[in-house]
């Protein structure tokens, strides 16, 4: 095939340089045309990485009155906020849930550190942590990762099997604050999300 092409009468030795140049030029132009589509194409595919990021402002919310939370019994509360989903915004929707645990001790006057709040998202793969009826521990329904009421993961020895949790429950900033008008004490939680599957808490951006 090649020989018969190069033996065509229109091609002499002098035209060979020109031919090689034309070949390269064709390739170059084809590449340029491809790049015009390919570069924006790749950029478009990478929108979730490069494009506008939703500002993940932490939601600060008063979840419950201090007096309504029993001691040492975890209570679950929803966190309500605006949830943006690509082109729609869902106002006042439940954007997450928290477990709130009031620590044993003097409950006459609320004080810092007496209330702990944890995200219900399992640090393993993000399933919703539930409270096990029998043991009272926090247990993930997916792979049975187990946590104590202080958020630490239950050790493998205690559990009698492997605990899938890479870290303890994600502890959220939590304060007991007094309402200016009613003088009531409230538990205020700062809700944030963290990357799953890591041994350390890394905020989702």
């Amino acid at each position: 095939m090649n020989e018969s092409i190069s033996n065509l009468p229109g091609l002499d030795a002098a035209s060979m340089n020109r031919r090689a140049a034309l070949k390269w030029l064709s390739r170059l132009m084809a590449s340029a045309c491809s790049a015009v589509i390919a570069i924006p194409g790749v950029s478009y595919i990478l929108t979730p990485l490069l494009g506008r990021r939703d500002q993940h402002a932490a939601v600060v919310q008063r979840v419950a009155r201090w007096q309504d939370i029993p001691v040492s019994r975890p209570m679950q509360f929803p966190i309500v906020g605006n949830r943006r989903d690509a082109w729609t915004v869902h106002p006042d929707e439940v954007v997450g849930r928290v477990w709130v645990v009031r620590q044993p001790g003097q409950s006459a006057s609320p004080a810092e550190g007496q209330v702990l709040a944890f995200s219900t998202l399992c640090p393993h793969l993000g399933c919703a942590i539930q409270q096990d009826a029998k043991s009272g521990q926090f247990v993930c329904p997916c792979h049975k990762a187990a946590f104590q009421h202080n958020g630490e993961k239950v050790s493998d020895q205690k559990l009698g099997r492997k605990n899938h949790a890479p870290r303890g429950l994600d502890a959220l900033e939590c304060h007991v604050v007094q309402d200016d008008t009613t003088q009531e004490w409230w538990v205020e939680v700062t809700y944030e999300k963290f990357e799953q599957g890591l041994t350390k808490m890394v905020k989702k951006v």
Partner: peptide, 30 residues
Amino acid sequence: EVEGNIIGSTPVIGPILQRILIGGDEVGHL
């Protein structure tokens, strides 16, 4: 959601692939 997190826990490229697949960090329209 779980499969996304499984992809995400793959070392190095996992989180990038997960973000592209899920279209952000929460399951939704994208």
